[in-house]
């Protein structure tokens, strides 16, 4: 019995040590966001604030200069929101319908289409950079948020279609037969029978898409410049522009603000986030 309680204690010790290690980056950035630049330079990035520098947040939010623009992180947060929300909703909705069609209405070539959709999940972004550049130019959406919405919607379809298809495939065949005999068509079956069953998968998909698009960097930095950039690209521009005069307090505040939306989504939807992970991986 002594042995058992000893190994139990060891287990807890290891667990809490690991938890502590995982929390360090978060703790450090939170604390730094409340310390002055001078204090950080004098000591190190890791330390308890001597004076609470709440003004870091106002500076990061509205005053700080990124490249030539001194408007803080606010416009970039707005950009990210204006890209992420429509792209998330559009890709989820279209993916749900496509997943429904491909799982419950068999048609010629559906397995091929589905294989290609799945491939879209794996295709490296680098293979799409030049085509997207040209498409954006040709439809006149270069350096616009609408362009990013389009890109994230089309690319997001791969994930959302896959997620929804894998969920809908479990809807019993008999249910579809019963609905057809009752005389319901494609749309009526979708919104009367399939959609009411969908909240679990739609929540997973929305959370997944939201975090993915909010956190995306490569397209943002490639297809937009200056004040049109999403917040991830702005953060990189920020670290470039403070290289000479370190402003780690303000920068930390900006990082906290930029990470906040996805952290909040994770905090409230973590359960579904995990479910999305498992659903996406076990194909």
């Amino acid at each position: 019995m002594r042995d058992a309680s000893l190994s139990r204690a060891l287990l807890y010790a290891v667990a809490f040590l690991l938890a502590f290690l995982y929390l360090i980056p978060l703790a450090v950035v939170l604390l730094n966001s409340l310390r002055t630049a001078e204090e950080i330079v004098q000591t190190s990035m890791i330390g308890w604030p001597r004076v609470w520098a709440f003004q870091n947040y106002t500076a990061a939010w509205a005053d700080f200069c990124i490249a030539q623009t001194c408007s803080g992180i606010r416009p970039y947060m707005l950009n990210s929101a204006l890209v992420t929300l429509p792209a998330t909703l559009l890709s989820t909705l279209l993916g749900a319908v496509a997943g429904y069609a491909i799982s419950l209405w068999r048609f010629k070539g559906d397995t091929w289409i589905f294989a290609l959709v799945t491939l879209g999940v794996f295709l490296p972004e680098q293979m799409r950079l030049i085509p997207w550049t040209i498409v954006l130019r040709d439809v006149g959406l270069t350096n616009t948020l609408a362009g990013l919405v389009m890109i994230h919607t089309v690319q997001g379809l791969s994930f959302t279609t896959l997620f929804c298809r894998n969920y809908y495939i479990a809807i019993p065949a008999d249910l579809m037969k019963a609905a057809k005999i009752d005389g319901a068509g494609f749309f009526r079956i979708f919104y009367r029978i399939v959609l009411p069953l969908s909240p679990p998968i739609l929540i997973v998909t929305v959370i997944w898409q939201f975090t993915g698009i909010w956190n995306e960097f490569l397209y943002g930095v490639t297809f937009t410049t200056g004040t049109q950039q999403p917040v991830t690209a702005a953060l990189i521009a920020l670290s470039a522009s403070v290289a000479d005069v370190p402003q780690h307090g303000v920068q930390s505040a900006a990082v906290v603000i930029a990470a906040l939306p996805t952290l909040l989504v994770y905090l409230f939807g973590g359960r579904y986030f995990v479910r999305g992970l498992t659903a996406g991986a076990v194909k």
Binding site: P172, D174, L175, K177, A178, A179, K180, I181, D182, G183, A184, R192, I193, P196, L197
Partner: peptide, 21 residues
């Protein structure tokens, strides 16, 4: 003729009741 216009009704092994209704 599609199922809905055949003037038939069907009872399924799994009952196939619409879960949300």
């Amino acid at each position: 003729i599609p199922p809905k216009d055949r003037d038939i009704a069907m009872v399924f092994q799994t009952y196939a009741l619409y879960p949300s209704m």
